[in-house]
Computed example of a mutant assay.
Amino acid sequence: MPAKKSILITEESILKRNHKKPRHTCFINTIIGCILIKLVFLVIAAKYSLIYGRLSANNTSPLPRFDNESCHSFNDGQTNSNLTSLVSPSKVHKVFLNFRGEQLRYNFVSHLTDAFERHRIKFFIDKYEQRGKDVKHLLVRIEESSIALAIFSTRYPESSWCMDELVKMKKLVDQGKLRVIPIFYKVEPKDVRNPNRGSEFGRNFWRLAELVSTTSRREQIKHWLEALECICDKLGLSLGEKSSESDFVYDIVKRVKDAIGLEEEEKSFLGENIKKKSEVSLRLCKKISGDWTGNQRFRSS
């Protein structure tokens, strides 16, 4: 009897040992779990980007108004609020208009914004003027935009706010966060890039510089000159004295739509990359799971 009992114990122990999980099972389960968690995070991130972007488009706060010294650059564009195309989680396709309001508001810019509305292009332009507002409100609107139009005219450098906006635009361009299209409205690009007293644009610039030429603001003038040079180096559009403004407006709209198309391609490329990574992770999960299942069957047999 003792011998039989020992034999039975030995067989039972063998059977139990055979049904124990392989030592590497926990390691494989950990790998599968990590991959599945990463996959879930990728899917959540993609959905969050879409939802957050739409919320940003639909919940744009009321825009401030600015006094006559400002470049007067934007309106909430309520008539264009249906456009919800996305560039990134924090931006929609908004075009920031940077221009000298007292010179262009009721002629050229009004025709341009009408064309934007017809083509459903969301833009910022302040239609009202109110004193006492801070330029910081204006700079926030530049950050919220994906494209900016710097519309240079002879009276553009009369406004320190116009120039400060331009400095902000240059900073965002350097960071890769903004596309700027320079528009030369009846002014020579070379006179804008290197303002001198031989041109009306240059005379207005240096007149403004003299007004702010204190020790604490000389650095600001340097930033203005750097911004003019940087933005003028971009591919822009120029209107001569005897050119057709209607054709010029059409060219600007086309250029903006092309720029929006480039943003769309970048967004699509990012989405495709996320999708491909998700598919690769899923296939890897299935492969590891299949290998593990096959190994278990082999051991059971």
Rank of each mutant, 00 (worst) to 15 (best):
F184V: 02
N273M: 06
H24R: 14
H137P: 08
K234A: 11
F116K: 06
L284Y: 01
E266G: 04
W224R: 02
S70M: 05
I14H: 15
V167Q: 09
T84P: 03
F123D: 02
L36W: 06
G202W: 15
Y48W: 14
T79N: 06
P189A: 09
T84E: 14
K47N: 02
L138C: 14
D191S: 07
L36R: 14
K136Q: 10
S61A: 09
V180Q: 05
S13I: 04
K170A: 02
F74V: 11
R141F: 11
I28L: 03
H111T: 03
L15N: 09
I260D: 03
V167K: 10
Y250V: 13
K21D: 07
T214V: 06
C26Q: 10
R23S: 15
I37Q: 14
E102W: 05
L112H: 01
R217Q: 12
L178E: 01
F96G: 01
L104I: 02
P182T: 08
E279K: 15
F184D: 01
R141T: 09
A150R: 07
F205V: 06
G198I: 01
F201C: 00
F201T: 00
Q78W: 03
L55M: 12
R23Y: 13
I31R: 03
I31T: 00
D76T: 13
S56N: 12
V140N: 09
F66V: 09
G53T: 02
L208F: 08
E102R: 08
T214Y: 05
Y250G: 12
L237C: 07
L15Y: 10
S243D: 15
V249I: 15
Q78K: 11
N204T: 06
A148Q: 01
L63A: 08
E11D: 01
N59G: 04
R283P: 00
W161A: 02
A259C: 03
R100D: 01
C71N: 09
E200Y: 07
Y156L: 07
Y250R: 15
F201I: 02
S213P: 01
L36Y: 10
K38W: 13
H223V: 04
R120W: 13
L225K: 08
F298I: 15
V212C: 03
E200M: 07
A3V: 00
P89N: 02
H19Y: 13
L270C: 08
K136M: 12
S278D: 00
